[in-house]
Amino acid sequence: MKKQLAAVGITAMIALSGCGAQSDDASSTAATAPSSSQGSSSQDSSTTGSGGSMGMEHNGSPEVPANLKEAANPKFKVGNKALIEADHMPGMKGAVGTITGAYDTTAYVVTYTPTTGGEPVKHHKWVIQQEIQGAGDEPFPTGASVVLEADHMPGMKGASATIESAERTTVYMLDYTPTTGGEPVKNHKWVTESELTAPK
């Protein structure tokens, strides 16, 4: 009888030990798993995988960096209409925009921590070469740590960021009225050429 009780006790200890290890693994996974980016541009601040800016007040300044060069032969010229395929902001996808600027540069997807506090903004699209502190002509590699000069959203300027990906492209600044209604968005920065199509 004593042997049977001892066996039951050992079995119970092993079972409890297994649960503890599983719980620790689950806790560890939850702690290290990246937070969902839905809900921000992005980033995009509540974050959105498509841009990291949903729920954020957009800075509609027409100013661009002094060393940013206008595109020599953009697909969409200033004043042209374009259908927006990007989903950086609520009501952006499917809206028809008017191009207010076209520039050739390197565009980056970044994750950054706002200087105003709060959770990191993941997968923000886009920050361009000329909006990164100390940037030269060479693009930054994936994983590089940088400081942002962009001021698209509150808490972005001066924020520490990590480069997720880079794309040499033409970027556009544009005006559009959200499909969800509300006030027109002026001088949205940035949408890449692949995120625009000709209006139907």
Rank of each mutant, 00 (worst) to 15 (best):
A102Q: 14
K157T: 07
L148K: 01
G94R: 12
M89A: 15
A135H: 06
V78K: 04
G158N: 01
E70V: 00
Q130I: 05
M92G: 02
Y172Q: 03
V147W: 08
M173N: 07
V171G: 03
G79P: 00
I132Y: 05
D87Q: 10
Y176T: 00
S165H: 03
A71C: 02
G158Y: 01
P178Y: 10
V110F: 11
P74Q: 07
P178F: 10
E85F: 03
T115N: 12
Q133L: 13
Y108A: 13
T113P: 04
M153E: 14
T113F: 08
V78F: 04
G97D: 14
V110S: 12
V146K: 00
D151G: 10
R168G: 11
Q130H: 10
Y112K: 03
E85I: 01
K81I: 00
T111H: 13
I128Y: 09
T116Y: 11
K77Y: 03
T98N: 12
E183C: 09
G117K: 08
S160L: 02
E149W: 02
D137V: 01
A135V: 05
K157L: 07
T111R: 10
D87N: 08
T162F: 09
S145L: 09
Y176R: 06
K81D: 04
M173C: 04
G94I: 08
M156I: 07
P120G: 08
G143T: 09
A86Y: 02
K186I: 01
G182F: 14
T105N: 10
T115R: 11
M153A: 12
V78P: 01
A102D: 15
I84Q: 03
I132V: 07
Y108G: 14
L174M: 13
I84K: 02
A166I: 03
H123I: 11
D137L: 06
T106L: 11
A95R: 04
A144K: 06
G79E: 07
M89R: 15
E119A: 15
T115I: 13
T177V: 07
I163P: 07
V96L: 11
E149I: 02
G101K: 04
D104E: 15
H88S: 04
G94C: 14
Y172S: 00
G158A: 02
G155D: 13
A166D: 10
V96W: 13
A82E: 05
D137F: 07
L174V: 00
S145C: 06
L83A: 03
G181L: 04
V78R: 02
V96C: 11
P74E: 14
V121D: 13
Y176D: 09
H124T: 14
A159L: 05
I99N: 08
I132E: 12
S165F: 01
G181C: 03
T142R: 10
L148W: 04
A144F: 06
G143F: 08
D87E: 13
P141E: 14
N73M: 00
T115L: 13
V127R: 06
G136N: 10
I84P: 01
M156L: 09
T142F: 12
T98A: 09
V147H: 06
V109P: 11
T179S: 12
T170I: 01
A144R: 03
A82I: 00
T179P: 06
T142V: 12
V110E: 14
A95N: 06
P114W: 10
V121Y: 09
T142H: 11
T116N: 12
